[in-house]
Structure formats: C-alpha cells, structure tokens
C-alpha cells in the first residue's frame, strides 16, 4: 500500500506543480483542437493555469511599472493604470454593411503582375501546414509549373488571434527577408474565432470578447497590418477563404472571418481573395460531407472533425486557387 500512497502523492503534486510551472503551455494546448471536450478536469486545470498566468503577468507588469516610476518620476499615471481593471468589451458585433461586401471583387483594379521566376510563399494554419488541408496539395501542384519555387510555412493551431502563440506578422517579415518571395498564398482563420487580449505598453490588459464590434475592429486591424507587410515588400497576395464547416455555429463564425478578409483585401491593390465557401456545398448551398467526382463516385470531403479536408476536397480547393492565380500569372507546365 505504501507505493499506492506514493503514487497518489506524486500525481497530486504533479497536478498542482505542472500548471504552475507550465501555465502558458496549458493555455496554448487549450486552443481549438480535436476532441477538446470540456470536462471538470479540463476546466480545473485550465482555470488554475489561467490564474497562474495572470498572476505572472501582473507580477511582471508591476515590476515594469516600478521601473517606470523610478526613471520618469511620473508615478500618478502608472498608479492610475494599475488601478484600471481589465477592460471587457461586450457590445454585440454589428451586421456587415452589404454595400461594402466584396461581391464585386472581379471589378476591382488590381496590380498583379509578378515577374517570372515565381517564388511562391505559402503561409497559414493547419490548412497549410499538414495533411487535411490545401498546403501540401497546392505545393505539389505549383511545382509542376515552369519557373516556380515554393516555400511553404505552416503552423498548426496558429492564426492572427494569438500572437503570443505564433506571431505571424513577425514571422512573415523574417521569412520575406530571408526568402524574397514575389507571390504569397495565405490561408488562415481556422483558429481565429476566439476571444483574445492585448497588453498596452503600460500594462493595461484589454480583453476582446469574440463576437463584439471591437473584436471585429481589432481583428480587421490585424488582417490589414498583415497585408501591409506583403504590400511593403511588393508581393502579390492570394488569400484563400475558409470553406464551409460541418458545425453550423462554427461555420457561421468562419463566414464572418471570410467577410473580414474579403473586405480588407479590397483596400489592397496587390491582393486577391479566393472564396472557397461555395466549393464544398450541396445543391442547396449547405455543408456537403460528400461530393461527386468526375467518375460519378460519391467522395468524402472532410476528415472526422468536419473541418479539415480529404485529399479529394483539398484538390477541389487547389484547382480553384490555381485557376484564380492562373488568371494573373502565366503558369506553364514543366513537361
């Protein structure tokens, strides 16, 4: 029985110690993933780690403020900031103005004429990073053309919502400096329909709850800033929209994100949006778990999670991308 007590104590200590020392990892691991079922154990560990993380941040913020007080002697402002509670923004998101909805994207004047050789940069989340998306299929497909080089950089569970996990703007800047691409294909968003927080330089935390107008504004700003990086480097951007999803509420969130990308891209003459939402739907425009292939066979479109794509569906999206890219760029077969 002695060993049993030892093992009980060990796991008791582990449950207390691991979220304390690995709080950030617990929070990162909570990002959307398969089988992420909420249960009491998950809730306990997550809320414990979140509290630890908040505590760590407040400690580091206090340290920063003390430093400011020592050097600037402007103690009142830092004290005021310290007294401010975290801001929480709850106003509901307003509906998107249909006038600005980018249905007339084809009519936009675009300056898309990168010169051969085409150095493609493919960036994005799991849809670019691993099987179950478009990235690997698209890369293979592009490599069949003359004068094409491809660099694919995908990061699972990444997006523009959580720069603390993966900072796409910074990463993109570095990749662009190192590899000098002239065409970029972006596919992001799977993990972005979530609340996020920002910290101002004086340590004030602002929580942006998903679904509020302010969340939309902040997210738009991030999309815009991301696109500006490509614009500043004279890179043509193709932004692949997310396809329809099985879960209706998740699918609706994704539709909202697509609209943001589509609208923001209108402001950039070097960028085009590639809608994919209607590619994987049935005749009524609803989510289709299967579609008919050219032989007349019913083929599955999604893997078990109802989010990621089968190879068959990945190829449908890839063909659409190649078609749109091919309208601007002359892609010649190698063989």
């Amino acid at each position: 029985m002695q060993e049993a007590i030892k093992s009980i104590i060990l796991f008791g200590v582990l449950v207390l110690a691991l979220p304390l020392f690995n709080s950030q990892k617990v929070i990162l691991w909570d990002s959307p993933r398969e089988s992420n079922q909420a249960d009491i154990f998950h809730s306990f560990v997550f809320s414990y780690a979140s509290k630890v993380e908040d505590m760590k941040r407040s400690l580091s913020t206090k340290a920063q403020e003390i430093k400011v007080v020592d050097t600037s002697a402007d103690s009142t402002s830092s004290l005021q900031n310290q007294a401010l509670p975290p801001q929480s923004i709850d106003k509901p998101i307003t509906s998107v103005d249909p006038a600005t909805s980018a249905t007339s994207i084809q009519n936009q004047v675009k300056e898309i004429n990168p010169l051969s050789p085409y150095r493609f940069l493919l960036v994005g989340d799991s849809f670019m990073a691993v099987m179950g998306g478009v990235g690997d299929i698209l890369e293979s497909s592009l490599l069949k053309y003359k004068s094409v080089e491809v660099l694919r950089v995908g990061k699972v569970s990444s997006g523009l919502s959580r720069p603390d996990y993966f900072d796409w703007p910074n990463q993109a800047r570095q990749i662009i400096t190192n590899s000098q691409p002239n065409v970029a294909i972006v596919m992001l968003g799977t993990n972005d329909a979530q609340s996020f927080e920002t910290y101002s330089t004086d340590g004030v935390k602002t929580i942006f709850k998903y679904g509020t107008q302010q969340w939309g504004q902040e997210y738009r700003k991030r999309v815009r800033e991301f696109l500006e990086i490509f614009q500043a480097n004279n890179i043509t951007v193709y932004w692949i929209g997310m396809p329809i999803m099985r879960d209706p509420s998740y699918s609706e969130r994704i539709r909202g994100l697509n609209l943001i990308y589509e609208q923001e891209i209108l402001n950039f003459s070097n960028a085009r949006f590639i809608p994919t939402r209607d590619l994987l739907v049935d005749s009524n425009g609803n989510y289709a778990s299967s579609l008919t292939d050219f032989r007349g066979r019913q083929m599955a479109t999604r893997v078990a999670d109802g989010i990621h794509l089968t190879v068959f569906a990945g190829e449908i999206v890839e063909k659409q991308v190649i078609k749109i890219v091919g309208e601007d760029i002359t892609l010649e077969d190698k063989y």
Binding site: I5, I8, L14, P19, V26, F41, F44, V45, A49
Partner: peptide, 21 residues
C-alpha cells in the same frame, strides 16, 4: 483526454485515490 495532458493527470489522481480506497 490524452494521456499526456495535465487534465489527464488530474483525472488520474482522482481515479488513483479512489481505486486504492
């Protein structure tokens, strides 16, 4: 719940305790 998550450790701690009791 994966074997390698901390939430599994929390679950396992409780199971371990009650298992031996």
């Amino acid at each position: 719940m994966f074997f390698l998550t901390i939430e599994f450790f929390a679950f396992f701690f409780l199971v371990l305790l009650l298992n031996w009791l």
